[in-house]
Each structure stands twice: as structure tokens, then as C-alpha cells.
Design a protein around this nucleic acid. Structure first.
Lengths: 211, 211
DNA sequence: TGATAAACTAACTAAATAGTTGATTAAATT
DNA sequence: AATTTAATCAACTATTTAGTTAGTTTATCA
């Protein structure tokens, strides 16, 4: 990239745009290695600004990490708010919730990975509470509604909800290892494979709770 | 620790015992941060020998990592060999397999965590193939047997097997985040909680595949 | 148009990190 | 008992890493 191109790429001095670029790059790197494994230079290298800007806007690696988590959790909570589970039959509500999670997991594999790291490396101290409760409580509510209505089998709603999320995210978190299960060259993130997996997963989850 | 205590702890110069101590410490650290995040000094600090011994026996951090994976995969494959799925009804065979996985996951949370890291950080290049195929193929075989016998519902055995393992390991991988779902102070790894979770998980998995 | 504040950078520093060197000590072998 | 071999360590080095400093460039507004 020539100096001229670089200048053109930046175009204007836009603090908000720069922050977003840094956050995007950081999210990817934190998803790869967590707070511990991520390298500040790798993050900076993905942006078109220098490393100093990271510290200018976010003070420290940890500050940047917190900002990444805050944004990711906020987005997820927003997405969940859009799903109406009040005026729907429990089976349909559960289907909508699962579909939303599968879509979120397939669109942004960073989030489940970052939270995996967050649990292991930081014992969930940053956003564990907010993220976890907001993710699971809706599912628990639907499961309990379904049991009360006699549609779902008797079960512990919390443990079951945990397993449901586990099913939703496992494939998307682990596809690099799981690829060995399919013929060499199969792309586990191709439209076809993702559709198949999402399909199978919805059916399996529904079967796992229905009476 | 006084010099005398240290001497007593080491007792004799035992290369094999030292290697095992290093591998144990390394397994824990790699489970915490993967190849990228683990610190060689942290590993050495957990043993009662100096850091140099690590390099003496395993050449490099990467060599140590490979040795850890090799041992972990070997152990797991050994454990799986003991389960007889040939002369058993598919439902019972599946129950045994799941129970074995839950037991393995609860006994050694390191393994699923290390493989999570292995997938993300190294794209499964070290032991992805061996570990993955040996873990999943038995389950796939049982699922297909069950479908052929008309006991299990029609499904894609591979995707379903992936989801089953996801359910088995998710709780044990993520308990640090999941703890926020239960009243403060609840120990997710207490005997009581683990029993409950294992129970619920077996029932859910069985419900998810039965016709 | 010139002053000012914000956006941005190059070049640096202190600490941490993977890995090495060369000597020492204990066990095994002659 | 003397010699050899393997196990162990203390002290080091080169490199990488998070973070800083002191300054330059660009937009904005009086």
C-alpha cells in the first residue's frame, strides 16, 4: 500500500469510525486467543491505524477487551429483545428462540468463543453475569411455560436450557476440529452445511423437550 | 518450602516422574490458555523442577504441547475401547457411551478445553483428526444401528453426534460463566450438581433420539 | 485566515517471555 | 572406589510485548 492509498483509505479523521475499526479487529483477535492470547500488535495490524490509537481510545488491552465485550453483549441483548415469546405457543416460541441463536452463532462465531475464553481465563468476571442471565432466562421461561401447559416433558429447565445453548454453539465453535468428520474439503460453514446443521439441531432440540 | 523439604519431595532423580509432573502442569496451563496463552514459567512454577527441564525433555513449548495432546488423546481412546457397543441394544449402548463421556468430561475438564483451543488457535492441526474421529465414530455407529432397528427417529447421525458431544461437554467447559444462573455460592462442580446435570443430560439426549 | 483542539504517528522503554549455556550433582556401571 | 552418564539448576540472552512520550497533521470555528 503506497502512502497515497493509505491516505485515501483513511479519507477523513473520524474518531468514531476508527474506534469501530479497532473494536472489530480486537473482537476477532480476542475470539482467537482471549484476553491472554490476543496480541495488541496483531489487533493494530488489522486496522489501518497505529497501535497507539488503541491505547489513546481504550487506555489498555484490558480496557479494549471490556469495550469489546460490552458491545457484543449489548448487541446480543438487543437481538433477543425482538423475539416475542409472550403471545406464542411454547413450541413455537422455543423454535423462534433456537432459530435466533443459531443465526447469531452462525453469523458471529466470535461471541460464543469470546465467552468461552471469558469463562476459562477470567472466570466470567467481566460480563459473565449480564451475558449469561440474559441469554438463558428467556429459554428457561419458555421451557417452564411448556411444562405447565403439558406440552413439554418434565425436566429441570435450567440444565436443559444450558444443554440447548450448548447444542446451538458447539458446531460453530468447533468446526475446525469437526471438519475431520466429513470428507476432506467439506466446508462446514457453507450455506448447505449450515442449513443442514441448523435444521438437524432444531429438530433434535424439539424432540429433546417434547412429551 | 525449605531446601530439605524440596529434596524430600523430589526424593530420587526420576526422569519419568519429572516428565509426568511437567505434563500434568502443562496440561492445566494449556487448558487455561491454549498453546498461545500458556506461559512456560507458569507451567514450570507448578512443578518442583526448573523451567529448563521442560526444554530438556520436550525441546520447545510446542513440543510440550504436542506431548500433552498425545497423552490426552491416548487416554481418551483407551477409555473408549473399554465400552462394548457390539452386543448391546442401541439404547443401552448409547446410554453407556454418554455416561462415559460425561464421566470423562467431569473428571478431566482439561481435555474438552484443550481441544477447543486446538481448534481455534491451531485449526486442529496437531491431533484434530485422530481425536475427533475416535470420539465421534462410535456414537455415529450406535445412532445408525438404532435407526436401522427402528428404535431411533430418522436423523443425520453425524450432526446429531456432534450435538450430543456438545451437550456432554458444554456444562463442564463453561461452568465459570454458567454459575451466574444459580444462586450465588452454588458450586456447579459439587457432587450433587454434577449428578443432577449428568442425569438431566442423559435423559435429554435419549429423548432427543428416541422415536 | 489563523488559532485551537482533536486525531494521529514514529520512535522509544520497561517488563515479560521463550529458549540457551555451562556448570553441578546424584545415580549407575565398571 | 573411580568413572561415566543422566538429571538438574542458576544465570544468562534475544525477542516480543504492553504501554509511553513528545511531537506532527488535519479539521473546525472564531
Amino acid at each position: 500500500m503506497s502512502p497515497l492509498d493509505k491516505k485515501m483509505a483513511v479519507a477523513t479523521r473520524d474518531a468514531e469510525a476508527t474506534k469501530i475499526r479497532i473494536l472489530d479487529a480486537a473482537e476477532e483477535e480476542f475470539a482467537k486467543g482471549g484476553l491472554l492470547g490476543a496480541r495488541t500488535e496483531a489487533i493494530a495490524g488489522k486496522t489501518d491505524v497505529t497501535k497507539c490509537m488503541m491505547f489513546y481510545y481504550f487506555k489498555s488491552k484490558e480496557g479494549l477487551y471490556q469495550a469489546v465485550l460490552e458491545r457484543a453483549v449489548g448487541r446480543h441483548i438487543e437481538a433477543l429483545k425482538k423475539i416475542d415469546i409472550q403471545n406464542t405457543k411454547p413450541e413455537d416460541a422455543l423454535r423462534s428462540l433456537i432459530a435466533a441463536f443459531l443465526e447469531a452463532a452462525e453469523h458471529n462465531q466470535n461471541l460464543p468463543r469470546i465467552f468461552f475464553y471469558e469463562g476459562i481465563q477470567n472466570k466470567g468476571k467481566y460480563y459473565g453475569q449480564l451475558a449469561t442471565t440474559s441469554i438463558y432466562m428467556q429459554i428457561v421461561a419458555v421451557l417452564e411455560k411448556g411444562m405447565a401447559a403439558g406440552k413439554f416433558r418434565k425436566m429441570d429447565a435450567m440444565h436443559t436450557a444450558v444443554n440447548i445453548i450448548g447444542m446451538c454453539v458447539f458446531y460453530y465453535c468447533h468446526f475446525e476440529n469437526l471438519k475431520y468428520l466429513w470428507p476432506s474439503g467439506t466446508d462446514l460453514l457453507s450455506r448447505k452445511m449450515k442449513d443442514k446443521h441448523n435444521d438437524q439441531t432444531i429438530e433434535q432440540i424439539m424432540a429433546s423437550v417434547m412429551k
